Amino acid sequence: MNRRELVLLGSTGSIGTQCLDIVAKYPERIKVAALAAGGGNLQLLAEQAQAHRPREIAIYSGNKAELEKLLHEKGVVAKVSVGPEAVVAVASMLDENGIVLNGINGGVGLLPTLAALESGATLALANKESLVVGAPLVKKACVRPGQIIPVDSEHSAIAQCLLSGRHGKGLTVPEITGDTEVAHLVLTASGGPFRGKTRADLQNITAQQALQHPTWSMGPVVTINSSTLMNKGLELIEAHVLFDIAPKDIQAVIHPQSIVHSMVTFKDGATIAQASPPSMHLPIALSLSWPHRWDDIEPACVWDQPTAWTFEPVDNETFPALDLARHSVATSDTHPTVMNAANEVCVDSFLREKLPYLAIVDTVAEIVDAHEGLVNPTLDEILSVQDWAVTAATERVSKL
């Protein structure tokens, strides 16, 4: 197997650090060409550079001189650049033989996603917001079928399950035929820390309580989104775009054990599930090796002792984010853009104790309803819509 170059975006985040665990295990297969990070943890970034020796490093914002000093102290020689445009530049530096893993959190991941696709590199996509915010642009930026490999555990699971039948649609398949044997997709959700609660139970929830996820270790924004089920709403839109399956044919189900990561039901009535203990190492590794598998990424499920997996329907009255996502994607190309941008503002406000927990999704819904919507938007229009949603949500939060 040839050694491939990797550009890792969001290297100091949860996905990025776990990706580097895999790279360290298989240095003969993956070489880090560039690291990009937000700039909030320069010490960790310098340590990563020391371990993996990239030739370029980019930070979204921060002190270039401080980073260069840290790198010099660690004997690292690399080109350092700062700014959003610097991250986009490293995202575009490889060709069709390389891999760009986009582990950036939030809507700011869209431009690097577009740059990576236009370069011809394989895009290992963990930044679901790229597809939520700019689906029409992402589709246009792809230069070949199957250029995107999903990293989210649910979408990685679906991609694996789809190999059990015929599916020639979407952004992940190597040949577009338009044919499919898929009846529907099933996205599993852990239910987060508040599974089984009512809206009345959630009146006075604190950030500390919402950050206590029962099965996954994730960053704060994703963890809050998981608790509100907004993460599952974003993932529903992501699945719709990635696999070209209508939202009405994508079902979400609560699975507290987080062992079955998603399922595909085919037209003959068979349902194929992907099961493994809850860890992101497996889908990350698979995004680097696809369609092959590397040895000993994670321990498998054990079958020599009693175990039980349970599934239950989503309580959409207590957790309306899934219904909001369905409404958004059905209304216009830019309603999902507004939903995502407003949610980022509201989650940040909740974490800073400026917004009550239940007001997160309620406020997002108000901003979504106020948006008129655009069809087939340009990049400038999408960025303008994002700015509008951020301003509208910020103003709304300030009045609460």
Score class of each variant (00 low, 15 high):
E5N: 13
V7E: 05
V7M: 05
L9D: 03
G16P: 04
T17M: 07
Q18S: 13
D21K: 10
V23F: 00
A24W: 00
K31Q: 15
A33E: 14
A37S: 14
N41I: 10
N63C: 11
A65F: 09
A65Q: 15
E66C: 03
E68W: 08
K69G: 07
V76I: 08
V76Q: 08
V76S: 11
K79Y: 11
S81W: 04
V82Q: 04
P84N: 06
P84L: 06
A89P: 06
V90Q: 11
L94D: 01
I104K: 08
N105I: 14
G106W: 09
P112R: 10
L114R: 09
G120F: 00
A121L: 01
T122E: 11
L123M: 05
L123F: 04
A126C: 08
E129W: 05
A135N: 01
K139P: 02
K139F: 03
K139I: 13
V143H: 09
R144H: 02
Q147G: 10
V151W: 00
D152E: 04
E154P: 09
H155N: 10
S156V: 05
K169R: 15
G170Y: 08
L171V: 00
T172D: 09
P174I: 00
T177G: 04
E181H: 11
L185K: 09
V186Q: 06
A189G: 14
A189T: 11
S190P: 05
G196Y: 12
D201I: 02
D201Q: 06
L202T: 10
A210L: 02
Q212T: 12
H213C: 07
P214N: 06
P214V: 01
S217Q: 12
V222T: 15
G233F: 08
L234K: 03
L236G: 03
I237H: 05
H240W: 10
I245Q: 13
D249K: 14
A252M: 12
S258Y: 03
A273V: 09
A275H: 07
S276Q: 03
P278L: 07
S279V: 04
M280W: 14
W290S: 00
P291Y: 01
R293E: 08
W294L: 10
W294H: 00
D296F: 08
A300R: 14
W303L: 15
Q305N: 13
T307Q: 15
P313F: 09
V314F: 02
V314M: 01
T318L: 10
T318N: 07
T318E: 10
F319P: 07
P320T: 07
A321H: 10
H327I: 03
S328Q: 01
T331P: 05
T331E: 14
D333M: 04
V338C: 09
A342S: 11
N343D: 07
F350I: 00
I360C: 00
V361C: 11
V361Y: 06
A365E: 15
E366T: 13
E372S: 12
P377V: 03
P377D: 06
D380N: 12
E381V: 02
I382T: 15
I382G: 13
S384P: 00
V385M: 04
W388D: 02
A389H: 02
A393E: 01
